[in-house]
Design a protein around this nucleic acid. Structure first.
Lengths: 265, 265
DNA sequence: CAGTGGTCTAGACCACACT
DNA sequence: GTGTGGTCTAGACCACTGC
């Protein structure tokens, strides 16, 4: 059993012994939250790898010296955050961007008619992949210093052979050392799946800022569109564990036969 | 205690008696799901009104003849869906679009710099509010028949006196009978809050389809923008309880100093 | 069959808000 | 203090998967 900020020092009924209580932030943290943190460390450290099964609830309960119900609540929250996937009768697994029923988990562009499958998978075309130095904007977004090495990728995604998305993306140079256009080209699957298997970087969460813009001449050319065709500008920052930014991406989406879908709750 | 599709007929340890089992869909539904349905009915029927407290967990447990833990799980899910709000020490309350810390729960447009509060609340200007007949599109979106009476509203939202959003919205005529431009003008608060208090319609969930478009002359005029200014087209369908569509809305967002924000998980 | 996650219970105690 | 939601436990049993 763990006990960092406050009570629960022994078994069953913990006694509170607040001697010389700190005046600032009682910082009470329930047991299951502390366990959640420990489990996050196991995920982050690579002890539990993507798509692999984690120990059973009973094992985890023994390991952390808590009841099964408590680890259960920790797992529930991690599953709600899409970090784990529960499968009744089989076990609990580390979520992955590959071999997931929903490929392209973060792509919200859908065709006007038919589902995403009707037009088959996207065709990817790597335009460019080069080393560069972080601009002020990129550095800020990735938590780097200006001038730090970054990788810059440009690609076009087509649906049913129609160029639909033009993407520029920037990756911090250090974690992604060794990424080349060839490896991107050869890999068959979502880019984030490649990041997991080849570089051990798992994208967990992302934020997008969306605008309507008019493309410049070069962008028109790459997407085979006329000037004055309005496009969706989708600026994404993707994060790994602990909210560390690991990718900055700017996509231009052609929305004449597709739309960006969002659900509000 | 409830028992619709399968077991749990008595107390504590329910016995399973599958005699002449149906070949299709065992349709097992856990107790807490059944209770969730019952609670949804209480919400839908108006027994529990927006911003009011619902009975305590202990009361509900007695009412439904289950343990507190079971109603707890039902409440947890309803709270996760933003239908209820839990407040420790005070009770559980029916969620509302009014007096919520986050006004404009469904509006995802934010200023480039500063938070939403820095520019103060939006100025609303009702351009039009009239009776009409549902077009084929509107009828389909609202689950009506073509030609059914609808209310059509057009308004402009401005931030810091700059017109930023032009919205057209369609409401089914029957539930919203009596809605006029005056009432919209006079009401001080989110439109969805007015819908709750005046018409008993609670918007629970919405879907948006987003595109980049070029406005026509009239739209340019209303937003005080030049031709060829690209805009975000945000098409929203909003739903009440039980996924019943209750509003169709199309907004044009000026995104030169604002952006549409989305979070991906 | 054994092992996994999923449901349900009953009871104890803690944290918080109000009075 | 009383009442509310929040945490934690221990144990029983159910549903699903795969050997």
């Amino acid at each position: 059993m763990i006990t960092q900020p406050l009570p629960s020092s022994d078994s069953a009924a913990p006694a509170s012994a607040d001697v010389g209580a700190l005046p600032t932030t009682p910082a009470f943290s329930p047991l299951y939250q502390q366990i959640k943190v420990l489990m996050l460390q196991s995920l982050q450290s690579g002890e539990w790898k993507p798509s692999a099964a984690i120990p059973s609830e009973i094992e985890l309960a023994a390991r952390y010296r808590v009841s099964q119900g408590t680890v259960r609540k920790a797992i529930d929250e991690l599953a709600a955050d899409n970090l784990l996937v529960r499968r009744q009768g089989k076990g609990t697994f580390v979520a992955t961007h590959a071999e997931q029923h929903v490929q392209y988990r973060f792509l919200r562009l859908f065709p006007d008619s038919g589902d995403s499958n009707s037009e088959g998978p996207a065709q990817r075309q790597i335009i460019d992949c080069k080393r560069a130095r972080a601009s002020a904007d990129i550095a800020r977004a990735l938590g780097l210093r200006q001038g730090d090495p970054v990788l810059q990728v440009r690609r076009v995604l087509s649906f049913a052979k129609v160029p639909t998305i033009l993407e520029d993306l920037w990756l911090p140079g250090t974690p992604f050392k060794g990424l080349t256009a060839e490896r991107l080209r050869d890999y068959d699957g979502p880019m984030y799946a490649l990041f997991e298997t080849e570089f051990g970087v798992r994208m967990v969460r992302a934020e997008e800022k969306i605008r309507a813009i008019l493309p410049d001449a070069e962008q028109c050319d790459l997407l085979h569109i006329a000037a004055h065709t309005p496009l969706l500008s989708v600026e994404r920052t993707a994060y790994t564990y602990n909210d560390i930014p690991m990718e900055m991406r700017r996509g231009l989406y052609l929305t004449d036969t597709h739309y960006y879908r969002n659900e509000l709750n």
